[in-house]
Design a protein around this nucleic acid. Structure first.
Lengths: 231, 231
DNA sequence: ACAAAAGTGTTGAGAGTACACCCATGC
DNA sequence: GCATGGGTGTACTCTCAACACTTTTGT
């Protein structure tokens, strides 16, 4: 183990990298998987779109920093978040060495109050599949988040935190299809997700503009934890 | 996005956290999954065992830092490494704020030269299942690595980088059993791993001290990449 | 010949996949 | 009564799990 950075003679403090937290905020809006981006007001990459984030403050855990950034951009708290990965290549920020810990947050459609505080930062939702050119290595970070999300849906029956409290089976199937980029068979999808036991009927139905009303489901509270194992 | 940490008036530099890289070095030794630990020479936690690691140097990527620490402890280069997760709770290091990016490295038994340089640091291999009390939050970090490794073996046919170049089917099965902590059926294991196509026969056999000689296998070069998808 | 580890097949259960029609509602 | 989306069953394939004996070698 190398020595402590402060135990060396002074003049080395400039070597300390900065630590930031970036948060990929994902939501389903009108059958699209959207990510919230902010337009940069300062150099470098001034005017370009970037993942919201900021520097870590003293006595704040990484999760707290991510939650704070999320609240600043969306006004939303109590949201599902997960640490993704840390990016720290030298040169990823031209100003100085910045190590960024990437988180991603999944929010249901109905939780978005969209810029309640006047942060004055310009924000916008983009489809993750049609992004503009992004600042820093942010495209790579979003690619990473998407791979992670797809893996979760394919290999387990985790709760998909992008849905509102009550939803129809068609809505959850559509969410899977949008994220995976593939059509799924209705009968097989329903049988599988109901057999997995993560859902329960609410007894209520959703009145649609057209067609037969659909049963509303919710995730069972008890099985919030994942159960991925096969045996 | 909060402002740049250096753009504020001075007096704030002490706020910058330090960034370290810890590397969990795993190896199979005599049917045990072992992790390499170092005995701390300085406070805090002086005399306790810890995961090898060190502070990130300027112009060094996170991967390079992890590889450097690995080489310092084992003399080994060109090893399979993967980023695990970043730990940064305030108070995890009593001296100051330290954000640590955890990596794990898997090395085959025969790659270990064990302390070729005289680092003077006392190192020792421990079974991951019988660890002493560790410094910092290092127990948590190792738990994390173990969960990650088990998930990989259970949900995919990735190359297990803990094995030497050539190995018998009994050896690879034993490796799976040690890591998963479960007995596996010999016939089912062999059928499954051969059907997955990640292995190929070498044509050579391993002469054993007792019993019938066993066919030696190797991982196929072309399929180093994972193929987890089902459809 | 015996001890030790390698090697090998079959059967039953459950999961995944492909596929097409009837049902309830609003207008 | 018709347009719209909700809801349902069956047959085939493939994967997984359980289970015991024969083969090859060294001594």
């Amino acid at each position: 183990m190398s020595s402590h950075p402060f135990s060396e003679s002074n003049g080395l403090r400039y070597k300390l990298p900065a630590v930031s937290v970036d948060i990929i905020i994902l939501s389903l809006v009108e059958d699209e998987l959207n990510v919230l981006l902010v337009k940069r007001k300062f150099a470098p990459f001034r005017g370009m779109w970037a993942i919201p984030g900021g520097f870590l403050e003293v006595d704040e855990s990484l999760e707290e920093a991510a939650a704070r950034e999320l609240a600043e951009e969306t006004g939303v708290t109590d949201v599902y978040m997960e640490q993704l990965r840390t990016f720290g290549d030298p040169g990823r920020d031209p100003r100085m060495r910045v190590i960024t810990v990437a988180y991603y947050a999944l929010l249901p459609i109905d939780a978005i109050h969209h810029r309640p505080g006047d942060d004055a930062a310009e924000t916008h939702w983009f489809s993750v599949f049609h992004l503009p050119k992004l600042a820093f290595d942010h495209q790579k970070i979003i690619d990473n988040a998407l791979v992670h999300l797809r893996n979760q849906l394919q290999h387990s029956n985790v709760k998909l935190h992008l849905l509102p409290d009550f939803f129809t089976l068609s809505e959850i199937q559509k969410a899977y299809e949008v994220i995976l980029g593939a059509r799924l068979d209705k009968r097989n999808f329903r049988r599988k997700i109901l057999a997995s036991g993560i859902l329960e009927e609410t007894g209520r139905r959703k009145q649609l503009p057209e067609g037969r009303p659909a049963m509303l489901y919710q995730y069972r509270k008890e099985v919030d934890q994942e159960f991925r194992v096969r045996r």
